[in-house]
């Protein structure tokens, strides 16, 4: 409780977070706007920038500190697995079906 309060007192994490988020937003939008890369590489840039930006948001805006063996980490891991199973499974089944019926 106490350390969480202290991190909230200064605007510094929010300023760091917004600068990093800005950079990680401008990169994918810039790549798409300029069409400088082949489509496959653009997808990789978009995906990588999105994942890093989500981590930046969790760390600097939501103050989520994942220390090993904390209950937060276990919950986050459980939900990440459920999320991947649901979303990944949906995509897998639907694209497989699409390939078979087309």
């Amino acid at each position: 409780m106490a350390p969480q309060r202290r991190t909230n007192v200064t605007p510094k994490p929010y300023l760091i977070g917004v600068v990093l988020a800005l950079v990680l937003t401008v990169i994918p939008f810039g790549v798409v706007a300029s069409r400088a890369l082949p489509p496959k590489q653009i997808f990789v840039v978009i995906g990588a920038a999105a994942i890093v930006q989500i981590v930046v948001h969790l760390r600097f805006f939501l103050h989520l500190e994942l220390k090993p063996s904390s209950p937060n980490q276990r919950i986050a891991l459980c939900f990440a697995v459920v999320l991947l199973m649901l979303a990944g499974g949906t995509l897998w089944i639907m694209f497989n079906l699409h390939d078979r019926t087309m």
Partner: peptide
């Protein structure tokens, strides 16, 4: 940009609350 700005200003509100 609007959403990022609003998220940041909510952060500043949290600082003011603290």
């Amino acid at each position: 940009m609007l959403l990022l700005a609003s998220s940041t200003t909510f952060g500043f509100a949290s600082v003011a609350i603290a």
